[in-house]
Nucleic acid binder design. Structure first.
Length: 326
DNA sequence: AATGCGTGGGA
DNA sequence: TTCCCAAGCAT
């Protein structure tokens, strides 16, 4: 209680400060959100789906889509039996629709190579489309209780501040960060699972990127960043450009394709506005088409964006027009 | 290694 | 309003 605060080790140290794991895990026992993919009865497939959806998309937006997805496709084989386009449509507005394509491809691989089950092995997970180092570790840990070091943006931020005394982690994951995360892992298997979950949750709820709630943090009295006077981040974050980009146009085209089941003539997507010509489209598609043309993107850019979508397999071109992949 | 890739909400 | 950011991945 009234002990002298113990500084956390800097990179290269090997000793984990006494009580660090207990402090964070105890906080988590009380503060953890009740998320459906954390329930004991959630299948590994449910966990895998959640991890795909949570790649760069906030929890609150994932929740309803995740529920509908698991209701409709409760097992990998159920999704694998569908067309990729249906996956993209069900993905809705979560963003980065290529993730839906990869999740579908992963389901196909699970059926073809893993008996329709999600493997517990980290390397087998890593081999799945759309699964990188983070997702492989997260599924191995959260679905199967494995002892793997999970490193996501939340965990990196907690480590950067509490241990390294920096305002924010660097833009890309460094070897030093990975090493530090491994050093901080509890030796005990069961505790290591809890630790991974707890640090991630701490980063998500308390040690947030902007205006962290240090008053609620179980590490406040031993945080290297607080001790250093909460210095500003060293490198200013690179903003994600959006307005006027191909990316914005791609998103608008995808919204048109998702809105209706029928192919959309390419001239509606890349050509000039012709409301009389487009009047036969479903109301939703027409609305999305209006939004696309409201961008006032050059025809050249719309064509380039569509080419990108075709190249990525998010759209296919047939005689009747452009549609989601069948 | 640096880029490109959606979307919406909060500061 | 504008900017930032959210459980990354593939190239």
């Amino acid at each position: 209680m009234s002990s002298v605060p113990t500084p956390l080790p800097r990179t290269g140290a090997h000793a984990v400060p006494h009580g660090l794991h207990e402090a964070v895990v105890r906080w988590f026992d009380d503060a953890a959100r009740d998320l459906p993919w954390r329930h004991p009865d959630c299948s590994p497939w449910g966990v895998l789906v959640s991890e795909f959806m949570l790649q760069q998309t906030p929890v609150v937006r994932v929740l309803p889509v995740w529920r509908a997805w698991l209701q409709r496709w409760p097992r990998p084989a159920d999704l694998a039996a569908e067309s990729p386009g249906e996956a993209v449509r069900a993905w809705g507005r979560l963003g980065y629709p290529r993730r839906a394509l990869r999740l579908h491809a992963a389901a196909v691989e699970l059926v073809e190579r893993h008996g329709g089950e999600v493997p517990a092995d980290h390397d087998a997970l890593l081999a799945l489309p759309g699964v990188g180092a983070y997702t492989a570790a997260a599924v191995a840990v959260f679905a199967f209780g494995g002892r793997q070091t999970v490193v996501d943006t939340n965990i990196r931020r907690v480590h950067a501040r509490a241990v390294s005394g920096r305002g924010l982690p660097s833009r890309s994951l460094t070897a030093a960060e990975t090493r530090l995360a491994e050093e901080l892992m509890p030796a005990d298997d069961v505790l290591s699972v809890r630790w991974n979950q707890a640090v991630m949750e701490l980063g998500a709820l308390v040690c947030t990127a902007r205006s962290p709630k240090c008053g609620q943090c179980p590490l406040e009295d031993r945080c290297a960043w607080v001790a250093a006077g909460r210095p500003e981040p060293e490198e200013a974050p690179r903003g994600q450009s959006w307005h006027g980009t191909d990316r914005q146009v791609r998103g608008a085209i995808m919204a048109v394709l998702r809105a209706g089941a029928e192919p959309v003539p390419a001239r509606h997507l890349t050509g000039p506005v012709d409301l009389a010509d487009a009047a036969r489209l479903p109301p939703g598609a027409l609305r999305a088409l209006d939004a696309l043309h409201d961008l006032a993107a050059p025809e050249e850019q719309r064509r380039r964006a569509l080419e990108g979508l075709l190249r990525d397999g998010l759209a296919v071109a047939g005689a009747a027009g452009v549609s989601l992949p069948g």
